[in-house]
Design a protein around this nucleic acid. Structure first.
Length: 784
DNA sequence: TTAGGATTTG
């Protein structure tokens, strides 16, 4: 452990510390937090004599005073220094010196209560890769000068041809072969790395760690690795490296001229600027001495029967059985051969449905086996992977004339077979991302004839919803018996004809409005033909609050056809709530069959009641009767649906009119009937949308005015049902993939997908879609 | 402990 005089400085602001280190405040120190590449600085205010521990290790303790916050008790901290570093420090350190340490362990201080110092102490040793820097007054320096000294282990790197059995050494090498971390049969992850250096000797290292992140971050042959404290043993007549206690590694891109950025998960590492030189020299040596042209391939250049490494993005994954697991990946290119589809249960398939669908012709299925299953399961959708040594197996099924390619990642780790997750800043990932963003899905979609072999039937690995959407797209050829008499008409012909006439068309959906789908739902009065927005929940809340200001009239409680309960809230407002349960044959019904009226309730209370009871009608008391609230509020709530009445056309009748329904043997409590007996003109939820259709001969605007269901989605429920909203969004994405000729504001869904995936630039011509569901009423209009 | 480079056989 050499003590090195690094520099004589005039001012301590000229700190010649390694550039990757950053100062950490004492008050931010806590056990368990990450202090990677951080250093602590303070003044030595106390030091204890150098002693030896029971095992003979030197031990030196000092107390450091921070300079930033003099009043805090966290401002002084115990530093415990072990081994050779203790001995060296004890020789040099004097009170008043500035002490800087990096690569320390933060441990809860057992003496904090007694000594009143920081709740943690720092432990410093060579094994932990600690580095100490001291500003001290050397006897030889002039009064105005300070010596900047380092007590960092001066790492000596052993060339690979000078390794000796039984030693622990530091070394550099170029990666000639590696197995990415995999689950060993013991308790740890294992990675096997073969290094070679300019001595032309190879060293195969077997590295273990319980955390795969702690193993060297090697992504390709040709990377440069630096190992510290690796144990050398002889095995089968050859030197072998194996992890020892203090093992640490740094890995660098091996490309000549690439930035020298160490990859590591070590809490701390020393990497002085002079080490850049070593990396650069190894890069240059490797460039002419190592073949780094591995079996990397794009899907477009896959060779049947060979093995290859694939850099790709994970789109989907699925459980298959105990010993195999499915990964669905793409790299933006198209495999020129038919590829297999591994049948899986729809419920087992993870991944963004829309993307799985959109990328279906570019995605390939890779079945991984045995020891790779555990790692595959843990992969995150959207992450970038390098899958090593995939087998492109040629096979053919009984019912096929032509063979297809199956992609297998077989069990075992021969030839480095395995899966590596690449970080977003990896240069290959950056390049892939840029490429994926530029992919024109239209090309792949137009290659339907070249598409994958659907061994399992059509899309059985998609959800019911998607199967349903598939079926919807097939409706015209299979179901539309109503319109069989009509031939398809080109849009150009329609535009040149006079209205009204009926046509059947086949067209693509170019765009639709409104893009915010919730805006497509309106309330329609079939009597006065008015349309209005669905009132905001706040309006209802306001009306309820206002009506709660009038207390329920007790004289109206308990009639022949309802039972009443009333109570007062315990809060300051002392609000009175009354609930009137409508009876049947003078008996109360089961809650799920019961209609009730509520006075004085809040929005939340009303919603709660709708969960439990069949119908809820908000009412208020007058002097003589109960009555409905303002018609800006729903007059009836049933399940998730709020029913509104038309203000213009309704003529509310006394609430007692309901008693006639209650007297029925089995009242249905149908909203239409309730509206009718209460003199309410029921507003219906409708979808109002504009579709712009194109078929190559022209464009036509078609208007959808649909009362109840659009692709089996009820307009009345979509505003309160997340699942239906997603279903609608997906339906629209299928009919008109996002990103296609939409305005900037209409790309929200695309932006959301972009979080996980490169912008799904779907300039695709989706397969022609028939917009002719029998339930639709489409009114065509010529586009100007 | 595990693996110790050197393709599964699904």
């Amino acid at each position: 452990m050499p003590v090195q005089l690094l520099k004589i400085v005039k001012e301590q602001s000229e700190t010649p510390l390694p550039s990757h280190l950053q100062k950490e405040d004492l008050k931010h120190l806590q056990e368990g937090s990450d202090h990677t590449n951080k250093y602590i600085q303070g003044i030595v205010v106390l030091s204890y004599p150098l002693t030896k521990l029971g095992d003979g290790t030197d031990f030196f303790k000092i107390v450091l005073q921070g300079v930033d916050d003099l009043c805090s008790r966290d401002n002084s901290i115990n530093i415990l220094i072990y081994g050779k570093m203790a001995e060296d420090c004890a020789k040099i350190i004097r009170h008043g010196d500035t002490f800087i340490v990096a690569g320390f362990k933060v441990i809860k201080s057992p003496t904090a209560r007694e000594d009143g110092r920081h709740g943690c102490h720092l432990e410093v040793s060579e094994e932990d890769g600690s580095a100490i820097y001291i500003y001290t007054k050397p006897r030889t320096a002039t009064a105005s000068e300070t010596a900047f000294v380092s007590i960092a282990p001066k790492y000596v790197y052993t060339p690979l041809n000078q390794l000796k059995d039984g030693t622990i050494v530091n070394l550099y090498g170029v990666v000639k072969f590696f197995k990415p971390p995999y689950v060993s049969k013991g308790t740890d992850y294992c990675s096997v790395v073969t290094l070679v250096d300019p001595s032309n000797v190879k060293l195969t290292c077997t590295l273990f760690n319980g955390n795969p992140d702690s193993l060297p971050k090697i992504y390709k042959v040709g990377d440069i690795a630096r190992f510290h404290r690796i144990k050398i043993r002889e095995y089968n007549g050859q030197m072998q490296g194996i992890t020892s206690g203090g093992f640490a590694s740094l890995t660098f891109d091996g490309t000549v001229g690439a930035p020298v950025v160490p990859r590591t998960s070590s809490k701390v590492y020393t990497f002085m600027d002079e080490e850049h030189k070593t990396i650069e020299e190894l890069r240059v040596w490797a460039a002419s001495n190592i073949s780094i042209s591995g079996p990397a391939a794009k899907l477009s250049s896959v060779q049947p029967m060979l093995f290859f490494d694939l850099t790709c993005q994970l789109v989907g994954k699925a459980k298959v059985d105990g010993s195999s697991f499915l990964l669905k990946v793409w790299d933006g290119t198209k495999c020129p051969y038919p590829t297999w589809r591994v049948p899986v249960e729809a419920k087992d398939l993870e991944g963004e449905r829309v993307l799985l669908y959109q990328l279906r012709n570019l995605m390939v299925d890779i079945l991984v086996y045995d020891n790779h299953v555990q790692l595959a399961k843990s992969l995150k959708i959207g992450s970038f992977l390098r899958i090593y040594s995939i087998h492109a197996k040629q096979a053919s099924a009984d019912n096929e004339d032509v063979s297809h390619i199956e992609f297998h990642l077989h069990g075992g780790t021969c030839y480095g077979r395995g899966i590596g997750v690449l970080p977003e800043n990896n240069p290959d990932v950056k390049e892939l991302k840029t490429f994926l963003e530029s992919v024109d899905l239209a090309d792949s979609q137009n290659m339907e004839s070249m598409s994958s072999v659907e061994l399992d039937g059509t899309f059985s690995d998609f959800t019911d919803l998607e199967s349903h959407l598939q079926r919807c797209q097939q409706l015209p050829v299979t179901v539309l018996t109503d319109h069989q008499d009509l031939n398809n008409t080109e849009l150009k012909t329609i535009m040149n004809s006079t209205a009204p006439q009926q046509y059947r068309i086949r067209a693509k959906l170019r765009t639709y409005k409104p893009q915010k789908l919730h805006q497509s739902v309106k309330l329609h009065c079939s009597k006065c033909n008015s349309l209005q927005e669905v009132p905001d929940g706040d309006v209802f809340d306001f009306i309820l609050q206002r009506s709660a200001m009038t207390a329920p009239n007790p004289e109206l409680h308990n009639s022949s056809w309802y039972d009443s309960v009333m109570w007062t809230t315990q809060d300051q407002k002392q609000r009175k709530i009354a609930i009137h349960f409508v009876k049947h044959d003078e008996m109360l019904r089961q809650p799920e069959d019961t209609l009730l009226m509520i006075e004085g309730g809040t929005l939340k209370e009303v919603w709660k009641l709708t969960k439990r009871f069949k119908c809820v009608i908000p009412v208020r008391s007058t002097e003589v009767d109960l009555e409905l609230l303002d018609l800006s509020a729903p007059f009836l709530l049933q399940g998730n649906v709020k029913y509104y009445g038309c203000k213009q056309c309704s003529a509310p009748k006394p609430i007692e009119s309901l008693s006639s329904m209650a007297a029925e043997e089995r009242p249905s409590w149908d909203p239409t009937e309730i509206a009718q007996v209460l003199g309410i003109e029921l507003l219906q939820y409708v979808f109002i949308m504009k579709f712009t259709l194109v078929d190559g001969t022209g464009a036509l605007n078609a208007y959808l005015f649909d009362y109840e269901k659009f692709f089996q989605i009820p307009a009345s429920e979509i505003l309160t049902n997340n699942f239906l909203q997603k279903k609608m969004q997906m339906t629209m994405n299928m009919l008109c993939p996002p990103g296609r000729k939409l305005g900037p504001k209409a790309r929200s869904n695309e932006d959301c997908l972009a979080d996980k995936f490169p912008k799904a630039k779907c300039e695709c011509q989706n397969p022609p879609v028939y917009l002719s569901q029998p339930t639709w009423t489409l009114t065509g209009e010529k586009e100007l």
